[in-house]
Design a protein around this nucleic acid. Structure first.
Length: 344
DNA sequence: AAGTAACCCAACCGCCAAGAG
DNA sequence: GCTCTTGGCGGTTGGGTTACT
């Protein structure tokens, strides 16, 4: 027994909106607002539409200051960096791009940006990441990883390639210890990027300056705490036990953090942590010994700074050749700290 | 010119969380 | 604490358009 439909589907018009419907909806909302009830709105206006459909039409099309198409390079980079960090949280991504809707960004990503970044590969060709060429056991494991996760890792590796075009991706330099499944996936991605990497051709950049320009938006992505703030946060609070009033954290540690709410930030970090730990997506239950073996944090002397780095790694400063070894990471973070300090 | 494939995007669907009663 | 309603979200689809053969 499913839930009751939000409207009488038999008496509701579907499909493209007529100009008259648009005009009625727009006029009404501009005069009276939504009244806090989308479901009742179509009756008040006198149009045969589902309330949810009205809401969608308003938010995605009729609302003032909506931009359609014509995504800038900077918007591309922002979308890409956010997708790598948080996945398909389109509403959050849209919140960082004024005038853009989640639907627009989702469409743009699925139809253009993803292809632009990952290269146009026919799904029927051999380099599809569907596990079809590997042994069946691990094939199932691979399939258990979401497309989003694979895409994010793939993008990550390709961006790594851009920063270190003379070096193949080196798993030994990967900032986290990977479990066997993740390692296998990374090997496959490595083979893929070596065998065909259209991105490398597409984005061959002649000099460091252009690279820095390409990665510039990562430097301050969507008001995420900068390295200095991150270090303070990591030192000040226990990540595992996020305080209930995490929105109060910036004040409590003497920081005034603009932009993203801290609770939201912690939620995103938790998702990335979970992703990197391969919890949930991995059908294999590791026993305690195995779990300990793959406890990334353990290997970092209990520090979780590496996770911070995952989110902020695309700092233009990391274009240096050693950004993938641990010293490079530390240097990188230190640079970020110092730069932030200089700004203050 | 016609047929087909690929692309694009508006709109729909269904799930989930929050809040009201 | 439970149920129901609603808003919000991400995934998916349908159909129009464009590119290719």
């Amino acid at each position: 027994m499913g839930r009751a439909p939000c409207c009488d589907k038999a008496n509701v018009k579907k499909g493209p909106w007529a100009p008259e419907e648009d005009a009625k909806l727009k006029d009404y909302i501009e005069k009276y607002g939504t009244g806090g009830n989308w479901i009742a709105l179509p009756q008040k206006i006198g149009i045969k539409r589902c309330g949810k459909s009205c809401r969608l039409r308003w938010l995605n099309y009729l609302r003032p200051n909506i931009k359609h198409g014509g995504f800038s390079e900077e918007e591309d980079n922002t979308i890409c960096s956010l997708y790598i960090s948080i996945g398909s949280r389109w509403s959050i991504i849209a919140a960082q791009l004024p005038g853009r809707t989640d639907n627009d960004i989702k469409n743009y990503w699925n139809t253009r940006l993803k292809k632009k970044l990952l290269g146009r590969r026919k799904q029927s060709h051999g380099n599809k990441l569907d596990g079809s060429t590997q042994d069946s056991k691990n094939g199932n494991e691979m399939e258990s990883l979401s497309n989003s996760a694979i895409e994010r890792l793939q993008l990550h590796m390709q961006l790594q390639n851009l920063e270190n075009p003379n070096h193949s991706p080196n798993l030994a330099m990967w900032p986290f210890k990977l479990n066997p499944i993740q390692e296998k996936m990374m090997h496959r991605l490595q083979l893929l990027s070596e065998s065909s990497n259209p991105l490398m051709m597409q984005y061959a950049l002649p000099d460091a300056h252009q690279k820095a320009e390409l990665f510039r938006p990562y430097n301050n992505m969507y008001s995420l705490p900068n390295n200095m703030l991150m270090n303070q946060m990591e030192n000040s609070i226990d990540r595992v036990n996020v305080p209930e009033s995490s929105s109060q954290v910036p004040e409590s540690i003497g920081m005034k953090q603009p932009g993203m709410e801290f609770q939201q930030f912690w939620a995103l970090q938790a998702e990335i942590d979970e992703f990197l730990n391969n919890k949930g997506a991995n059908p294999i239950q590791l026993d305690q010994a195995q779990a300990n073996e793959f406890d990334y944090f353990k290997e970092m002397d209990g520090s979780k700074d590496m996770m911070t780095w995952w989110s902020n790694e695309f700092d233009a400063n990391s274009a240096s050749s050693n950004s993938w070894d641990s010293n490079g990471v530390l240097d990188h973070q230190q640079q970020g700290y110092e730069q932030s300090a200089l700004k203050n």
